[in-house]
Every structure is written in structure tokens, then in C-alpha cells.
């Protein structure tokens, strides 16, 4: 019966792809947009408010003061400790992800200012292997905590992840305690972490650093679940509530502090950074 359960994985918690729709077609209302239209609207559907997936660099540009972002640990790359090979070698999947996304890994970290408030940013990108967490994501997050602690600024974490990076085996599971310890060290240094969960934040990332924010907020409609709806349905044959695992359900059950629509996020985070900052600033 142990074959029934499983949890922290790359693809499984991710919602069904919306048919064969064009990525710029809104899955909720079918409106279609050009890149520049969505860009201008922060990738939120102007018609119905659906939040499209936002790439890490676009997210950073939408939050950080212009010219303030200074990336750290950009050259970290995954190794292949298990020489992992399923239908294709892991190294090939990594190379392909890098080509496709222009990113070295599923997380970008660096120093930034938001409306003049210094902070450290750790932003995930779902386009890189489903935002899965392997050794590099863990190490980057860990370094972001240290950078924030050293400079005496808060950490703002923005997650989008299907879970652990299976291809790194047990080492990917070890990124859970690793990132947890990093947050604890940050807290011991007296700095807060603001956790922004975006669609989807699931499995290993939800079961580690993302849930340890002093303040946790989510984007509307984001799936925040340890085990996603499909697996829960398949395993338990339970009837799922309409909003199973969504941000709205999580708010109702007391797991997050607020749901903040993307256009309001910058102002919301700014207010928190001021409140956590030194008095009189």
C-alpha cells in the first residue's frame, strides 16, 4: 500500500495544462493578449483578473526600484550527483531548461530596494523544470538568508514550485531541512522573512521555507498544497471541495495572512518592510 502515496514531486502537483491553449490566452475567460499587453498589466488578465505565471525577472522588475537589483550567486549550477537517467539524462534536462528560460536555475536571488527599503529577494521561476527544488535552489535560498542577515535587511521570498527535484534523489529532500535551518539563522539574526506564495507553491517548498514567513501572503487563486488535488483524488477517492488547496481555502483555514492581488503587492510589501524596519525610517 505504500505505493499509494506520494508527495514531493516535480510535476504531479501542478494543475492540468489548460488544454492546448496559447500561453497568452487566459485559461479562465479565453481572452487573448499580446506579450506587451500582459506585460503592462503585470500578467494579470485585464478582463477577469486571472493571474498568469510570472517569470522571475519580470517579477523582480515589478517589485524592485529601478536599477536597485544586484543579483547574487548567478553562476551556481546543478551537478548530477546520481548520474540520473530516466528516459533522458538529468544533465540534458538541465541544459534544455537553461536554454528555454535563460536562467541557470529555478531561483534568482539578490539585493534590492523596494520603494527605498533595502531587502533581499529570493524569487522562483516555474518555467525552469517546474520550479523544482534541488541543491542549487536550496543553496541560493540559503545564501539569500545569509546576505539578508549580514546586511541587516528583511528577506522577501516569492515561491512558485511543483516540489522537490526528483532527479537529485535524497539530496533534493535534504533541501527542506537546509532551507529551514537558513530561515532559523536569519530569524536568530533578528531579520524577518516575508513569504509570497504564488501559483503553484506545493510539496517540498510548501513543507519548508515558504511556510516559515513571519508574514505569509498568496496571490489570488494560487494552489498552495502539500499534495495537489489530482493525487489526493486518486489516492483517497474523496470528493474534493471546490476550492481545494487554493489560496482562498488556505486563508479560511488560517494558514496564510492575506490574499494580495499582484497590482497591490508592491505597496503591501513596502508597508511591511517599513514596519519591520528600524524605528524612524
Amino acid at each position: 500500500m505504500s505505493s499509494r502515496i506520494d508527495v514531493s514531486i516535480e510535476h504531479r502537483n501542478v494543475p492540468e495544462p489548460p488544454g492546448k491553449k496559447h500561453p497568452n490566452t487566459c485559461p479562465a475567460c479565453d481572452s487573448h493578449y499580446r506579450d506587451d499587453e500582459l506585460e503592462a498589466a503585470l500578467w494579470v488578465c485585464p478582463h477577469c483578473g486571472h493571474h498568469f505565471t510570472m517569470r522571475a525577472r519580470t517579477r523582480i522588475a515589478s517589485l524592485a526600484d529601478e536599477g536597485s537589483f544586484s543579483e547574487e550567486a548567478a553562476d551556481l549550477r546543478s551537478e548530477d550527483p546520481l548520474d540520473f537517467f530516466d528516459l533522458r539524462p538529468y544533465t540534458e534536462r538541465l541544459a534544455e531548461a537553461e536554454m528555454k528560460t535563460g536562467l541557470g536555475e529555478a531561483m534568482v536571488i539578490g539585493q534590492a530596494a523596494i520603494d527605498g527599503n533595502g531587502c533581499e529577494l529570493a524569487v522562483m521561476d516555474f518555467s525552469f523544470m517546474g520550479g523544482s527544488m534541488g541543491s542549487v535552489v536550496g543553496e541560493k535560498f540559503s545564501r539569500a538568508c545569509d546576505s539578508a542577515a549580514q546586511r541587516g535587511v528583511p528577506l522577501v521570498s516569492i515561491t512558485a514550485s511543483g516540489g522537490a527535484r526528483m532527479q537529485e534523489g535524497i539530496l533534493s529532500l535534504m533541501q527542506l531541512p537546509k532551507t529551514v535551518c537558513a530561515v532559523e539563522d536569519l530569524h536568530d539574526a533578528g531579520q524577518p522573512m516575508i513569504s509570497v506564495m504564488t501559483h503553484p507553491t506545493t510539496a517540498g517548498v510548501l513543507a519548508s521555507f515558504a511556510s516559515l514567513g513571519d508574514v505569509i501572503v498568496a496571490e489570488p487563486g494560487a494552489l498552495l498544497a502539500f499534495t495537489g488535488p489530482r493525487v489526493v483524488q486518486q489516492t483517497t477517492r474523496e470528493k474534493l471541495p471546490e476550492d481545494f488547496g487554493l489560496a482562498e481555502q488556505n486563508l479560511r483555514f488560517g494558514h496564510i495572512d492575506a490574499i494580495v492581488p499582484r497590482p497591490e503587492l508592491r505597496a503591501y510589501v513596502t508597508r511591511l518592510l517599513r514596519l519591520f524596519g528600524p524605528n524612524g525610517d
Binding site: L76, E79, G134, S135, V136, G138, Q175, K178, C181
Partner: peptide, 9 residues
Amino acid sequence: KFRSLGVYA
């Protein structure tokens, strides 16, 4: 110890 776990380049 836990913060040192992982393999990367």
C-alpha cells in the same frame, strides 16, 4: 550540517 547538504558547481 544540514546547511551543507547538496551538490552543485
